[in-house]
Amino acid sequence: MDALIEKLKGQIIEQLNLAEVKPEEINPDSPLFGEGLGLDSIDALELIVLLEKHYGIKIQDPKDGKTIFQSLRTMAEYIKSQGKS
């Protein structure tokens, strides 16, 4: 799980152009939206694209995004649960 979280950190920084954020600054349990990384609605769409592009996962119900993208750890757990890590 830790390896996947580290991999996700790099992918998120690249995909979301978080140029001023270092991987070690991202707490896996901090909220991705609002506080924490302070991502916005466009970032949410980019995360959906990231899951599809890198892990072949399509989120069928947009409502699930709220749970999946709660934190880096919940993202990693979801990827694992889909058997795509």
């Binding site: 979301l16 152009n17 466009i42 970032d43 769409l45 980019e46 694209v49 599809e52 592009k53």
Partner: peptide
């Protein structure tokens, strides 16, 4: 086919 929402905006 992976259009980027962040580019599209």
């Amino acid at each position: 086919y992976f259009p980027s929402p962040a580019v599209f905006v």
